[in-house]
């Protein structure tokens, strides 16, 4: 506002006096501008509502994921247990004792000493021998000897042959078969070979 060269003022002709006069700063009366309230309130409500609903949806989806996780967890545990059980059954089926018993039921016997056949030359090393059915290998423990009281010598009575009435025998045989049938189905039952004792 203070002019650096005031001495010129008198010499310079006053130009654009009116304009200068007009451009001079004055205090403007305060004007209140009222922004429209509705959009703002609407925006805030939208944000809040959106937030709440979003949170709710998010929470719900997390809950659902949690339910699914719990269910799948349970399923995984059940399947793992099932796998273990099947694995156990498989191992029991692979038990050499069971396989040997099954093989013996098929009439198989332990092979004798090994011999080698060289393919191509046809040369045989070792002493080949035929498997001997008489040498069945006892895979079950021997049954304990019964004391004499429980194992009496057979009482042999020789009688003269008489004609047999067919009806009676048939009935008796059928009864025995029915009673004995159940025992034979149990594979774990030690089946003693005849030559055991």
């Amino acid at each position: 506002m203070s002019s650096p060269v005031p001495q010129f003022r008198s010499r310079v002709p006053r130009i654009a006096e009116v304009a200068v006069e007009r451009a001079r700063l004055t205090v403007v009366p305060r004007r209140r501008v009222r922004a429209a309230r509705m959009p703002f309130v609407a925006l805030v409500s939208m944000v809040l509502l959106g937030g709440v609903v979003g949170l709710l949806l998010f929470n719900t989806s997390m809950q659902q994921a949690s339910f699914a996780a719990t269910a799948l967890d349970g399923q995984a545990t059940r399947l793992a247990a099932r796998e273990q059980l099947l694995e156990m059954e498989l191992d029991r089926l692979r038990n050499p004792q069971r396989i040997a018993a099954a093989a013996q039921r098929l009439g198989m016997v332990q092979a004798c000493t090994p011999a080698f056949l060289t393919l191509g030359t046809g040369e045989i090393t070792g002493q080949p021998c035929a498997a001997d059915p008489a040498g069945r290998f006892p895979i079950w423990p021997a049954q304990p000897q019964k004391p004499a009281v429980l194992d009496p010598a057979p009482n042999v009575v020789e009688v003269a042959a008489t004609p047999v009435i067919s009806g009676d025998t048939d009935h008796g045989a059928a009864g025995n078969a029915a009673r004995g049938g159940r025992k034979n189905q149990q594979p774990q039952q030690p089946q003693q070979p005849q030559n055991q004792r």
Binding site: Q110, A111, C112, T113, P114, F116, T125, G126
Partner: peptide, 14 residues
């Protein structure tokens, strides 16, 4: 011994 030799396919030395 015979079973072990058989199982591991050990040929006789000749």
């Amino acid at each position: 011994m015979s079973y072990a030799l058989k199982r591991y396919a050990v040929p006789p030395t000749g």
